[in-house]
Design a protein around this nucleic acid. Sequence first.
DNA 1: CCAAGAACGTGAGTGATACTCATATTTGCG
DNA 2: CGCAAATATGAGTATCACTCACGTTCTTGG
Lengths: 217, 217
Amino acid sequence: MSDAPAEPFADPGAPALRRRPSQRRSRERVERILAAAVALIEARGSDALRMSELAERAGVSIGSLYQYFPDKAAVVRTLAERYNEEGRACIAAELAGVRDAEGLRRAFGGLIDTYYALFLAEPVRRDVWSATQADPALRAFELAESRANAAIVAAVLARLDPAAAPEALSASALTVMQLGEAAMRLAVSVERAEGDRLVDAYKRMALAELARAAVAR
Amino acid sequence: MSDAPAEPFADPGAPALRRRPSQRRSRERVERILAAAVALIEARGSDALRMSELAERAGVSIGSLYQYFPDKAAVVRTLAERYNEEGRACIAAELAGVRDAEGLRRAFGGLIDTYYALFLAEPVRRDVWSATQADPALRAFELAESRANAAIVAAVLARLDPAAAPEALSASALTVMQLGEAAMRLAVSVERAEGDRLVDAYKRMALAELARAAVAR
DNA sequence: CCAAGAACGTGAGTGATACTCATATTTGCG
DNA sequence: CGCAAATATGAGTATCACTCACGTTCTTGG
């Protein structure tokens, strides 16, 4: 009945850009389009994004817009990919030198703070993600990204406790990472002081679970 | 720049139904429409829901559809409200008789299992929620619902530790509840065995945070 | 520097779809 | 039965995503 376990063919490999811009002029245009998309989504939500409005705001004709993006979803998808890459780099960087449980605690705490700062600076990350969830194919793509991020964490956990069952570590890692994103989206949806407290609560939950997973039972 | 703290006028009070069906025939029609909406959203996602298709599948004309639902968002919103009410009832029921920390542990563990069962039975809850997040007004509405649910939990925590700071309890409760929904949506997006492990991981995290909040430090 | 072709830009036009409204049908009620 | 209120209908309208035939700018080899 549900499509959950078996997306027929999710095809996250479809090209986001229709034409790869090679000249400087066109690369700048793509950037202007993306910047305008961020502004519009931030202002009124991804549902209210109109391609004509986007073109006008970017100072570009409708035709030009479609030279680069095959459809509206591709605009959102390109933004999502950028944010994903940025996030992945943060995770890899912060967790690179972790050697013991205490190091993991410090590193992951720092990672949460860094992530929160990213969301505070660009709360539109929340809306881009939301836009992604309404389409099964895009949702599958995002889940795959989350798995990749979780795999980095799971690898660190496995180093700290080589005897642990891999599925258990993967489950902890995926849950902690996915709930982390959810916590960030929630935190930027409320006023700052409350958001800080919510991030603190998540941080306690995440660190406790990672500590539990990282030591032999 | 962001709209986060000050949604200009979120208006979650707009009526979901245009005309309140008073005769039995029309009440049945509304039910048929909602059932068809669930089936269509489940099959291809909320983005791909077409009003004409919905009318046909429900055995109703386009005009009838719009007699009851002012627009497409109202259909999704009605479903979201039903699921919210059902969830609220679960929470209130499971947490009603909690007297001590151990009781909270048992009750909340049971609540998570009940919630997970609801999501497994109707994974479309995930898609309905997603559809809700693309529109700022609907998102504000959902956040208000989450706050109401969290308030129930915060009240229990306050009873167990009357000396605790209310904002701290609210933060713990809101985080635990919101991440719980996120965990359920994640769990029904993967195969069953993995979903069970993910719910287990969330359960550990939630119970640890609630236990921490429920006892004087 | 020039020519030719490749890359890029354009916006009126097309099709799909959310939503309306004038009219017809059904129901409840004396 | 007869009337009014409620309900049902689907052709019609407005809006928006997306296309395409043609014009403009860049690049490259001579």
